[in-house]
Write a protein that binds this DNA or RNA. Structure first.
Length: 573
RNA sequence: GCACCAGUAGCUUAGCUGGAUAGAGCACUCGGCUACGAACCGAGAGGUCGGGGAUUCGAAUUCCUUCUGGUGCACCA
């Protein structure tokens, strides 16, 4: 379709010049071209409103006159003027053959490109704070990050998934404090993370009433940074225990990282010292109220690099990590997926980073913010006991799909596995369906919906597709020739399939997986319409072959799309 | 107080750098399983695109203003 647009733009340029002596650039004309929403208006449209004023003619007359200069040929089947629009109808036979041919040739590789040229794209996602169970708040970064990872992979980049654990900072001074005070009250072995987070919450509460507790926590953290053995051992225990638990959850969700690192690796060390030296060298590190800071602009609080008690800050550790990432990976992009609460933070450190790394690495820094998850009752709060743990949510999702499998008497060998694929798929799909910046009010019923625009709906279409292909023993490497002209419904499905490469590109460029999610819904829904009104395994051999190609194409696109989103595609359900 | 983000049908939402009657899903009312899987499909009803102004041939989309909600603004991360 792209080539045809180029062709149309070229012809229009000539026509405009010929008829009205208008010298418009080819790029300008190309960008004016639209895709009509209503397919009755063709495939490509050129609006003529803007010429009316200068030419003193009505847009409709202009459109008609330009049309006179054009002739339908080859790729263009028909040119028609409706109102101010010149509508181009592309010969659908050629288009559908091109698209299906490409899909059949490439199989699951369809939609992949190599524009990334294997360059490194770092994606920092999930990155939970240790010593807390994995909860709903961690879910979005994990799911969005993974989708971005897969999208960049499809574009031929080398994505590097970094799980940058929140494993350093004063909060661990507080966890240590809580642990010292309350550890005997818990059965740590049984449920270490809930116990630890509870101890932390209690210490935090104590600190609110008693400033001394917070001082002790700061002291603990300072000792930790100085390498105190007792504190360090406790911290290691927190970290190991947390990781063990996280691995289990990631495994359940089919989520993998290339690198596990954490703030602790960028605390007091040569790494942070080097950053401090660089800032000093550039003369931007100044003292303010006992802390060392970098001033950014007049009316803005500075970026704090070192606290007045000499502890490192989040900002300093992030800067050290940017330096490390630049050196170690020579990245073209370094993406951070966090909630929008941290917009200001990243904005600051990206500006300070110019004193630390080369310009090209600054340009590659991207913060991808997403909206917050909140409950109907408000924010999640450990103290109020309103935190939703991911494990519980996943269990609910699996239980619900298991129940449906039983109701439907689904006949598969491994029901457990299937229930997992569907339940978790529903969860993930639901999260990736909306624009990432929007806040989400968590509603269990909504998340576990299986009808309409949901994960199970799309998975179901895929299962039906698999079922047909299997029944027909379809082999893409052995397709008989056939002559067949696709009907409107079929043509629409095929044209949609043709958009996949562009959709992947757009979703990646906008850091917006929902673009892909919605596209998959469109494909599944168009396919379903086709499926309900056309018999694939028809008596007519030509028709059957042609329709099987379409079915195969839809299968490839749905599977590919879902897999990019991190959702599995069972063949039967 | 300053800055950023969001505000589209009862609910959840799509709408690309402004373009042809604002698309979906859920819920609601009808209709469709002796078909390749009804976790489906078709039809209907439902909209002052938060309010006001401006730019334009043309605005949900751009600009200004205002209201509502959210988030962030120096030693938490």
């Amino acid at each position: 379709m792209e080539e045809i647009k180029i062709y149309v733009a070229q012809k229009l340029k000539e026509a405009l010049n010929e008829k009205y002596n208008l010298e418009l650039s080819y790029e300008e004309i190309f960008s004016m071209l639209e895709s009509p929403k209503d397919k009755a208006n063709g495939d490509i449209a050129f609006p003529c409103f803007r010429f009316a004023k200068d030419l003193h003619l009505s847009p409709n007359v202009i459109a008609l006159e330009i049309k006179e200069e054009l002739s339908a040929e080859d790729k263009i089947e028909k040119i028609q003027v409706i109102g101010a629009y010149i509508n181009f109808y592309v010969s659908s036979g050629k288009i559908t053959d091109d698209i299906l041919g490409k899909i059949i040739e490439k199989g699951q590789e369809y939609g992949s490109t190599n524009i990334g040229n294997m360059r490194n794209v770092l994606i920092d996602y999930s990155s939970p704070n240790i010593a807390k169970p994995f909860h709903l708040g961690h879910l979005r970064t994990t799911i969005i990050g993974r989708a971005l990872y897969n999208l960049y992979k499809e574009l031929g980049y080398t994505p590097v998934g970094i799980n940058y654990l929140g494993d350093w900072g004063r909060q661990f001074g507080l966890v240590i404090e809580g642990y010292k005070r309350f550890k005997d009250e818990y059965e740590l072995e049984k449920d270490p993370l809930h116990s630890l987070s509870d101890m932390y919450a209690r210490a935090n509460n104590l600190a609110k009433d008693d400033e001394k507790v917070m001082d002790l926590a700061r002291e603990n953290f300072k000792k930790l940074e100085e390498g105190d053995e007792e504190c360090l051992n406790l911290w290691k225990y927190f970290r190991d225990t947390s990781l063990k638990e996280y691995y289990r959850i990631y495994d359940l969700m089919g989520c993998k990282f290339d690198v596990y690192t954490g703030e602790s690796e960028f605390s007091v060390s040569e790494r942070t010292n080097e950053v401090i030296d660089m800032l000093n060298e550039k003369g931007v590190l100044t003292e303010s109220q006992g802390a060392k800071v970098v001033n950014l602009s007049e009316n803005e609080p500075p970026c704090i690099i070192i606290k007045s008690n000499e502890s490192t800050t989040y900002a300093l550790r992030d800067l050290a990590s940017i330096l490390w990432r630049a050196r170690n990976y020579d990245y073209v992009k370094s993406i951070y997926v966090t909630s929008y609460e941290q917009i200001h933070h990243f904005n600051q450190i990206f500006r300070v980073a110019k004193y630390v790394v080369d310009e090209k690495y600054i340009e590659g820094l991207v913060h991808v913010p997403y909206g917050m998850v909140r409950l109907k009752t408000g924010k999640m709060s450990t103290r109020e006991g309103t935190v939703i743990y991911l494990q519980d949510l996943i269990d609910d999702a699996i239980k619900k799909s298991m129940k449906i499998l039983e109701e439907k008497n689904t006949d598969v060998e491994d029901k457990e596995k299937l229930a997992k694929q569907i339940g978790i798929g529903a969860l993930v799909f639901n999260d990736l369906k909306h624009n990432k910046i929007k806040d989400v009010v968590f509603d269990l019923n909504e998340v576990l919906r299986f009808d309409g625009e949901t994960g199970p709906y799309v998975q179901y279409m895929y299962a039906r597709i698999s079922s047909i292909l299997k029944k027909a023993s379809f082999d893409k490497n052995n397709i008989k020739d056939s002559s067949y002209e696709y009907n409107d419904v079929e043509t629409e499905v095929i044209k949609l399939l043709g958009k996949l490469p562009n959709v992947i590109k757009e979703a990646a460029e906008n850091y917006e997986p929902s673009i892909l999610t919605r596209y998959i819904i469109d494909v599944a829904s168009a396919f379903s319409t086709f499926y309900n009104s056309n018999t694939v395994l028809s008596e007519d051999e030509n028709e059957k072959i042609a329709r099987l190609k379409l079915v195969y194409g839809a299968g490839v696109v749905i599977k590919k799309g879902l897999n990019i989103l991190g959702i599995e595609t069972p063949e039967k359900m």
